[in-house]
């Protein structure tokens, strides 16, 4: 029997490195289950759809909660990890929605909102971005990682710099470079300003 998540969190707080791995696994499991529920439950009840949104939030808040973890490096490690998970979840979800040509997927699902808001506020189509990031990763893994941390993980510039073990100016430069590179790659249709 696996340890429950809350108990694991307590061990992580005490600084137990093994608990960290287990916690990672547990949270990953939860997000994965979530992704699955969202993918499969086209016919899910109205109530449970709402609750799924709540779950996404809850999982995220629990993952990134600042006071959840005392040791700074651990928090960073979490967030980096969570960034990758978030990217996976969103990309898989967007792909599923795209491929889903029929079936009872009438209800607008919670992640639709995220994709919608992402496209409005961050001018990003998650699938296209994922692809562009893979291309960037091939020539400049560090910058690609930085984008993942900042955009998918919500890390601040300083946190991301510390995670990648680079200086702040380097992080700023990489960030600016990566955005230009990605934007060129995506050629979002509008003319450059």
């Amino acid at each position: 029997m696996k340890k429950p998540i809350d108990e694991l969190l307590a061990s992580v707080r005490r600084g137990d490195p093994q608990a960290l791995a287990q916690w990672n696994e547990a949270v990953y499991e939860e997000l994965r289950r979530l992704a699955r529920a969202i993918n499969v439950n086209g016919f899910s009840e109205r109530d449970s759809t709402l609750n799924t949104t709540a779950l996404v939030h809850e999982a995220w808040v629990r993952l990134s909660g600042a006071d959840g973890l005392s040791r700074v490096e651990q928090r960073r490690e979490f967030l980096a990890y969570a960034a990758a998970v978030m990217r996976n979840v969103l990309v898989d979800y967007a792909r599923a929605r795209k491929a889903e040509k029929r079936g009872g997927a009438l209800a607008a699902l919670p992640l639709d909102d995220v994709l919608c808001v992402a496209s409005v506020h961050s001018a990003v189509d998650v699938l296209a971005l994922d692809e562009a990031l893979q291309a960037l990763h091939a020539i400049d893994p560090r910058s690609a990682r930085l984008v993942e941390l900042r955009f998918f993980g919500g890390l601040s510039e300083a946190e991301a710099a510390a995670t990648l073990e680079i200086s702040l100016p380097t992080a700023a430069r990489d960030w600016s470079y990566a955005r230009a590179w990605l934007r060129r790659r995506l050629r979002s249709g509008d003319t450059p300003r």
Partner: peptide, 22 residues
């Protein structure tokens, strides 16, 4: 790259913040 130097909203709002926006 300089022509496409990112401006405006591109990647400006990270996903976790969008999640909380609701």
């Amino acid at each position: 790259l300089l022509r496409w130097k990112a401006s405006g909203s591109f990647l400006s709002e990270p996903i976790p913040r969008l999640l909380q926006r609701d």
